[in-house]
Simulated assay, not measured.
Amino acid sequence: MKTVSRVINGEPNVSAATIAKVMAAARTLDYQPDLHAGNLRRADGRTRTLGLLVGSVDNPFAGAVHRAVEDVALQHGVAVFASSLDDDPDREQESVDAFLRRRVDGLILTTVTESQAYLAPELRRGTPVVFVDREPAGITSDAVVSDNADGAALATRHLLEGGHRRLAYLGDRPVIQTARERRRGFLEELGRAGVATRGVPVVDGLHDEESARAATIALFDSPNPPTAIFSAQNLVTIGVIRALRELGRHHDTALVGFDDVPLGDLLDPGVTVVAQDPQGIGRAAAERVFARLDGDHSPPVRTIVPTRLIERGSGEIPPRREG
């Protein structure tokens, strides 16, 4: 029986012939190891699992982070339990509690609550916690993020350098940290350029394609519609694209989106974006968790993954002449 246990748990110093016999018998009996029971016997007490909380499975950004985390975890023989936040504070804590009940070895979290101080006891117990996309509040822990304010400033500067002065901002709900940072980057860049921010349309509270589409149409019902739009989230960008095409304004209104959109390079015009690197974010977060599990007790680290401007045409449309 002890030999069978050593084979199932991947312990060393078992001959290849013995491993083959045990695995053949396991297949014949349709045997599946009890992972929870195995945890009780495993010397390091680990479950070989991670908990991953992402913003929304509807968002390609979250999907790319998820895939990158799984790729790294697979290399370590670790499974990933994943849950979707949907930017609901109650759902955040319920998901984290569910992960902890399963005794995951580490957590990678996108969060929305005002404070993550509820995780302080878990940090004291030594559970690695890495935050992705949004930084924690109320505790100090590792985080892997984009520079959201700088990326938004980059998009805004690109439109200003193209000659635009009537810009509009369309963004996500201000309860979300990244949304606040992108709005700040937009407004501060206007100020640096000497463009008065008073009267600049700033429409936030958007969180899906339809709300962004409706907000864009409303902008063009105003007496002085914008010549350029900065859309500060990828689903918002898709809604803006739909509205501009519906109104016939997609060739005379400049658009730069924050974060890439699916098939953005195949549209006419192609969609200019400030692209994040969700694969890089997910990979860095997972590697940080495994470094902690391997004994890295250094102070928490804030890792910034760079953004980059991708010019495809929509952000290079010049200001239209009215009248």
Rank of each mutant, 00 (worst) to 15 (best):
E114N: 02
T110A: 04
T18M: 13
G77F: 02
D44R: 05
D86P: 03
N13C: 05
V112R: 02
P12I: 11
Q116H: 00
D97Q: 15
L119Y: 03
R125L: 08
T111N: 00
L50W: 05
D71M: 03
L53P: 11
Y31H: 06
R27I: 04
A16T: 14
L53S: 10
D30F: 03
V65R: 10
R91E: 09
L85Y: 07
E122K: 00
D86Q: 15
R42S: 02
A98L: 15
D44K: 06
A98N: 15
V65F: 09
L35F: 06
P33I: 03
V112C: 02
D58G: 15
R46W: 10
V65S: 05
A16E: 15
V104N: 04
L29A: 14
L100F: 07
T47P: 13
V104H: 02
S95V: 09
R91P: 08
A98K: 04
R103W: 02
T47C: 13
V22A: 05
V96C: 09
D34W: 05
L119D: 00
L100S: 07
F81A: 12
D87I: 05
R46D: 05
P33T: 00
S115V: 01
V104R: 06
D87V: 11
D58A: 14
P121A: 12
A43Q: 04
S84V: 08
S95H: 13
T49Q: 00
S83Q: 09
R125M: 10
A37Y: 04
A62V: 09
R42F: 05
L100N: 06
Q116Y: 02
L40F: 02
E92F: 01
E122N: 04
G51V: 05
V14T: 12
E70K: 04
V14N: 14
A26M: 15
S95G: 10
L107P: 05
G51K: 03
L53G: 04
P12F: 08
S95D: 06
N39C: 12
L85V: 02
S95I: 08
S115Y: 00
T49R: 00
P33A: 01
R102Q: 15
D71N: 11
V78Q: 01
L50Y: 01
V65W: 13
Q116G: 01
P60N: 07
S56C: 07
R27F: 03
R124D: 02
A73P: 01
R103V: 09
A64K: 12
A25V: 14
P89D: 06
L107C: 01
D86H: 10
L74K: 09
S115I: 00
G38T: 08
E94C: 02
T47V: 08
G55H: 03
L85T: 03
S15H: 12
L109N: 10
P12Q: 13
Q75E: 09
A68V: 12
L74G: 06
G63V: 11
A24Y: 09
L109G: 10
F61V: 09
V112A: 07
D90G: 11
P12D: 12
A26L: 04
D44G: 07
Y31K: 04
L85C: 12
V72W: 01
V112D: 00
V69P: 14
G77C: 04
V80Y: 09
T110L: 00
E11L: 11
E122Q: 01
A82H: 11
D97L: 13
E70S: 14
R124W: 03
F61G: 13
A37H: 01
V22R: 10
A82C: 13
V54D: 11
R125N: 13
D88P: 06
G77S: 07
E70A: 07
P60Q: 12
